[in-house]
C-alpha cells in the first residue's frame, strides 16, 4: 500500500509543473510539430509511400517525439541528482522504486497527451484515422516510451554527479537511432550497410509496427516484431532502473 502511495506522491510532484503550465507540453513538441507541418506536406506529395503518406509519416513523428521526450526525462533527474533535491528525498522513507515508477508514470501521461494531440492535429492534414489501430499504436508507443524513460533515468544515475556521460550518450544515440529507423524516409533506398544497421536498430521495428497499426493492419508480422522490440526495451529499462534505484545513488 505504501508503495502505491509513494508512487502517487512522486507522480503528483512531477506532474505539478505540467498542471501549472500545460503549454510547456507544446513547447517540448515544437520539433515534431515542425516536422508535421513543414516536412509532412512535402512527403505527402510523394507517391512512394504506398498511397497513404500520412499513415506512413505520422507514426515516424510519434517515434521521434518518443525518442526526444522520455530520453530527456533523465535530464530532469540528473539535474536533481546534481542539486540536492534527490538526496533530500532519499533521506525520507519514500520507496526507491516508487521514485522511478512515479517519474516514469509522468512520462507516460505526458507522452499520451502529446501523442493524442499530434494525431488530432494530423487528421485535418489528411491522416485517415483507423481508431483501433491508432489506439493500439499509442499503447505500443507508451510501452516503448516507458522503457526509454527508465533507461534514461539509469543513464542519469550512472552519469551523476558529473553529467558529461549523460550528454555524450544522448547526443550520440538519439539522432543515429532516429535516422537509422527510417522515420523520415524509407531506408530501403539506402545502401546495404545502412539497411543492415537499420535491421539491428530496435526502433526500426517499432516504427514498422506503428505504420502497420496506423493503416489498421493488425495481423502483419511487423506488429509482432514491433511489440517484441518495445516490450524488450521496457523490460530492460525497468529492470535496470529499479536495480539502480535500489542499489542507491
Amino acid at each position: 500500500m505504501s508503495f502505491v502511495r509513494d508512487t502517487v506522491t512522486v507522480f503528483e510532484r512531477e506532474m505539478a509543473p505540467t498542471w501549472r503550465n500545460p503549454f510547456g507540453l507544446l513547447f517540448t513538441m515544437v520539433q515534431p510539430l515542425l516536422f508535421l507541418y513543414l516536412f509532412g506536406p512535402v512527403l505527402s506529395g510523394s507517391t512512394d509511400l504506398g498511397g497513404a503518406p500520412w499513415e506512413w509519416f505520422v507514426p515516424g513523428i510519434l517515434i521521434m517525439m518518443c525518442l526526444s521526450g522520455p530520453m530527456m526525462a533523465g535530464y530532469t533527474l540528473l539535474v536533481e541528482l546534481i542539486g540536492g533535491s534527490m538526496e533530500r528525498m532519499l533521506v525520507t522513507p519514500l520507496s526507491r522504486t516508487a521514485m522511478l515508477v512515479g517519474r516514469t508514470l509522468k512520462e507516460f501521461v505526458v507522452l499520451l497527451a502529446q501523442g493524442g494531440l499530434l494525431i488530432g492535429l494530423a487528421i485535418p492534414l489528411g491522416l485517415d484515422l483507423h481508431l483501433p489501430g491508432v489506439l493500439t499504436g499509442l499503447a505500443l508507443l507508451i510501452v516503448f516510451g516507458v522503457g526509454l524513460g527508465a533507461l534514461s533515468f539509469v543513464l542519469a544515475i550512472v552519469s551523476a554527479p558529473g553529467g558529461e556521460l549523460f550528454y555524450a550518450v544522448t547526443q550520440l544515440t538519439v539522432f543515429p537511432l532516429l535516422l537509422l529507423s527510417g522515420v523520415l524516409l524509407p531506408v530501403d533506398a539506402g545502401p546495404a550497410w545502412l539497411q543492415t544497421a537499420a535491421a539491428l536498430n530496435p526502433v526500426t521495428y517499432i516504427v514498422e509496427a506503428e505504420r502497420a497499426l496506423f493503416t489498421g493492419a493488425f495481423t502483419t508480422p511487423a506488429v509482432l516484431y514491433g511489440t517484441l522490440a518495445a516490450t524488450a526495451v521496457a523490460a530492460l529499462g525497468l529492470t535496470l532502473g529499479t536495480r539502480a534505484m535500489r542499489r542507491g545513488i
Partner: peptide, 19 residues
C-alpha cells in the same frame, strides 16, 4: 539545496510531508 528547481516552494514542502 534540497528543493527542486522546477517546483514551487509550497509544493515541495507538501511533497516532503507526503514522503
Amino acid at each position: 539545496n534540497g528543493a527542486g528547481e522546477n517546483f514551487r516552494v509550497r509544493d515541495e514542502l507538501i511533497t516532503q510531508g507526503r514522503c
